[in-house]
Amino acid sequence: EYERSKNDSIQDIFHEMIDETVHDQCRDLSLRQMRDVKESLKNESIERVGTSLIVDLVDDCVSKECQAISHKTLQEEETLRDLK
């Protein structure tokens, strides 16, 4: 009876230890995985957004420069024509 009780207790503690460790490990893996995926999605988003912001910045700057160059060129050409 004593040995049976001891054996059952050992089995219970053994299963409990496995369960606790598996659960802890699963929680740790889940937390890490969620964090890693979030981080990776954030980085991908930053890269896409950064690229698109630069495209817009270049477009905006080119538009403004083209307007300025057009204005200036026309003015210069008109001055030249008037001088002639």
């Binding site: 160059i69 057009s70 204005h71 026309l74």
Partner: peptide
């Protein structure tokens, strides 16, 4: 000016 801007912007 608008014609000129329209003409040169794609090249720009």
């Amino acid at each position: 000016v608008d014609d000129l801007v329209a003409e040169i912007t794609p090249k720009g």
